[in-house]
Write a protein that binds this DNA or RNA. Structure first.
Lengths: 251, 251
DNA sequence: CCAAAAGTGTTGCAATTACACCCATGC
DNA sequence: GCATGGGTGTAATTGCAACACTTTTGG
């Protein structure tokens, strides 16, 4: 499977390329975006086999898990400073890596089936919240496409990645009550209804407009700007800005 | 570092022994007990160096992470069905494994410093809640001792294990509001005051006796038995039993 | 009989929920 | 001017925290 920095993908034989990573380990990223009123998920399609997966990557020998996840995000979305949170490690057996070999065979004729990528891989799951507008889904030479899908209607994913997505959504829901939650899914300046749509999409249920606004302002972490959003068909809503980082700490 | 099944520890050379595990990976277990009114932590002392760590182990090539953690628990406490929960993976650089080499040198004169155990190891953190009475802390031939310490006054741990303990306590606190929480720290039958002490120890603050009892009964998951605890100096309290598993699911 | 711990009920506050009214904008 | 969405306030409810009284047991 093609993961990690693209620039080294094509240099030399595969086994040498794999030597730069911690064997049997990977990070998988559940990348959430928000657009058109619902949550989007970034998925990667691999050529030939009609197989989709989460974007992921291997971990360099001298690279922290977090750095590895950031690298995946930077590579797949072009974004550098992304809200990223580890939520679970997935290490049960039967995380079939068999299709990976087929994938390699589409590029290389003779691949050693004993390489660790075809055996068991333990994966550390991260979820990421990105600004849909700024993200530039990037397809590499290995993959057919890298694109957003509605999180409730994405193509079935290989391995146990569907389960990983469910797990990530749960973790995301649980993290929703800290000040600044959902910030990273929106542009820097946003309106209160927009923030509400984000919360509704994550929780999966409608929220009361007025109570929502009150709670957000009482909780702190948001700052109302003088400006309003122009151009809408109705009363112009205020713009807001977050005053805390996505992790709940002040800037 | 001596981890994993004891029976294979002494068979053959170390590098062969290590071949049965996923390289660069381990599980570390934060084992909580409850005794004499406060939380205890199970720690292991390694010989010669005045070094303590959490009980941990490596992950077999055909073993799930959870199985590996269960194996550590079974080995260190003799308990088979333990409430175990993964809470975080620790993979940042600088998790110095240097002392491990010294440890091996106390047993073997010539150890290859290129073995993966001396390089970087990513560790999956599990916390466990065990019945203090039933647990039998077990020292193996490699370690000086395996013993309970008050969680607020345990010897400083090597690596980043002190940080791991803090992380585990936080996860434990967050998991305290599900029905059946704290069950696994007590014997099968327990009194309400006992359960309250557990919650107080985890939260680190006193709780109101009456509100506590009400909440526990309203929430469900506990069942009052006919019997009472005899022999106390005062009014005999009722005995209770949990009707849900530690994970919040009914039996 | 007294001290100390356990069982049960009631009150009051505070946070959340439900709901009503006014304002702005485009067609 | 009217439909639609946005901003603000208030009443109702509920969940939780504070607190009082009774019961049991050993000494």
């Amino acid at each position: 499977m093609p993961r990690g920095r693209p620039r080294v993908l094509l240099d030399g034989p595969i086994d040498k390329w794999l030597d730069q990573f911690l064997p049997h380990l990977s990070v998988d990223c559940v990348v959430f975006g928000f657009h058109g009123g619902d949550l989007k998920l970034l998925v990667v399609k691999w050529p030939g086999l009609d197989v989709w997966t989460l974007p992921g990557g291997y971990v360099g020998l001298e690279q922290s898990l977090e750095e590895a996840a950031h690298q995946v995000l930077r590579f797949r979305t072009g974004l550098r400073h992304v809200h990223l949170r580890q939520f679970q490690a997935f290490g049960r057996l039967g995380r079939k890596e068999a299709f990976g070999r087929k994938l390699f065979l589409t590029r290389y004729s003779d691949v050693d089936p004993d390489l660790w990528v075809f055996k068991r891989v333990v994966s550390i799951g991260y979820y990421a919240l990105v600004d849909f507008q700024k993200a530039r889904p990037t397809t590499d030479p290995w993959s057919d496409s890298c694109a957003w899908y509605p999180v409730d209607a994405h193509p079935p994913l290989a391995y146990d990645h569907d389960g990983i997505v469910g797990c990530a959504r749960e973790a995301l829901r649980a993290a929703l009550d800290v000040p600044g939650a959902g910030a990273s899914l929106l542009p820097e300046r946003f309106t209160m209804p927009e923030l509400q749509r984000v919360h509704e999409a994550i929780l999966g249920r409608p929220l009361d407009r007025r109570n929502f606004q009150k709670r957000m302002l009482d909780r702190g972490g948001v700052e109302r700007l003088a400006e309003r959003r122009r151009g809408g068909a109705h009363r112009a809503p205020f713009l807001y800005r977050f005053t805390v980082s996505p992790d709940g700490v002040g800037f």
